[in-house]
Design a protein around this nucleic acid. Structure first.
Lengths: 217, 217
DNA sequence: TAGATTGTTAATCGATTAACAATC
DNA sequence: TAGATTGTTAATCGATTAACAATC
């Protein structure tokens, strides 16, 4: 197929995207404080970042600032929300409704940013057919149908380690385009799908490494 | 005070530590499969990494390989476990026993790697004084005493956003040396303490960024 | 010994930071 | 206009990868 555009779309570093997310939340706060404009310097200082980095991160996407002034807080916030896809609702599938799945489901932060958990999938017979806060709990075999019917684009996986790989493949098969996985263990990351694992063990072991180093003789 | 050692301790990149953690789990698997030695090339291929990177990561800590042979699987595993501090038990405080705290408490992976949740702190009167699986649920004001009495070195924070900052400060005050935080929102990272936040919103927003890019006109 | 693979140095790549002309 | 701050280019820094002498 033809290129999406004549203009080169530079590959955006992941760290830039993560910082955009941080900037956005900060701008929200700044806006609530009634501040109208902010310089890259002021914004950078809130995270001990470099002001050039803030400007460069933003410059990937356009010219949002005004020389001599800085950035208009609410305007920049709106731009970043659009860039991050936070100006719309995403229909989210939650797979696995154990302790962790339930915790994620009740996490209020998601809804606030437009992530709407539209269906829960869990094969536990005790949960099947129930609904949590109006959201139905469905068997995994319904995934292809429901993904289409409910326009599910994103999935959060909170199943035991041994189910993670088949669940991921089922999600990909059902046309899900991005997956956030909390199941431990090594995964083959699927092709053509954004896949991110949050691995508790790695986080903990990184900490224990530094603890262990600190207690060396 | 005097330097810890005459030998220069190179600063270890965080990404190296994270990979060590991954190597260790992989070696565990390889050992169970009955394989005795493995080359950096073989190991690297399992994660689509470069073999030079594997060798360089290991070389920060010593010479563990044998030229012409590779690495002895169980020997290297043991070395890495020692380096990561997984050859001992760490006493862990879990702060916050809501949905997420409870999920983390029941996560079996921790115990397997020597992270022992020795005390739970939660000020909810309905939970106070109870015990979960033999682990007492205590009020936060007991933290300084209990941290000392139970030799708590590491804390997992799973409290609401608004409590995260005071909780963190209380932990630092009680002498905790490493904190893994799951509470959302911006934190002032404490000094002299290893502090790592896992931020669900950033992960989700990074995914939605790529979704949004993909659905551009 | 010949073949294999390490540990390490040098080359490459990419991300961060400094510097500054453009311009509000 | 003078001062401030952007967007961008050039310099720096650090991490990844290639290459290879050392050596099992």
């Amino acid at each position: 197929m033809a290129r999406r555009s004549h203009f080169k779309i530079p590959r955006i570093p992941e760290m830039t995207v993560r910082r955009l997310s941080v900037y956005t939340r900060c701008l929200q706060q700044i806006e609530e404080d009634g501040v109208k404009t902010i310089s890259s310097q002021d914004l950078a200082e809130r995270f001990s970042l470099n002001s050039a980095q803030v400007r460069k991160d933003l410059a990937y996407f356009g010219e949002f600032g005004v020389r001599g002034i800085g950035y208009y807080v609410s305007g920049l916030k709106a731009e970043l929300q659009r860039i991050l896809g936070l100006d719309r609702e995403w229909q989210v599938a939650l797979v696995g409704f154990g302790n962790l799945g339930s915790a994620l489901f009740h996490y209020k932060g998601f809804a606030r940013q437009g992530f709407r958990i539209a269906a829960i999938f869990d094969d536990d017979p005790a949960k099947l057919g129930q609904a949590a806060g109006g959201v139905p709990i469905l068997p995994l075999r319904d995934l292809p149908r429901e993904a289409k019917a409910r326009n599910l684009q994103l999935a959060i996986v909170a199943v035991p380690a041994e189910s993670a790989q088949p669940v991921t493949e089922a999600l990909v098969g059902a046309g899900i385009k991005a997956i956030l996985n909390f199941a431990p263990g090594r995964m083959r990351p699927p092709k053509d799908v954004r896949f991110k694992s949050v691995d508790l063990s790695i986080e903990l072991e990184t900490l224990s490494f530094y603890l262990a180093q600190g207690t060396r003789a």
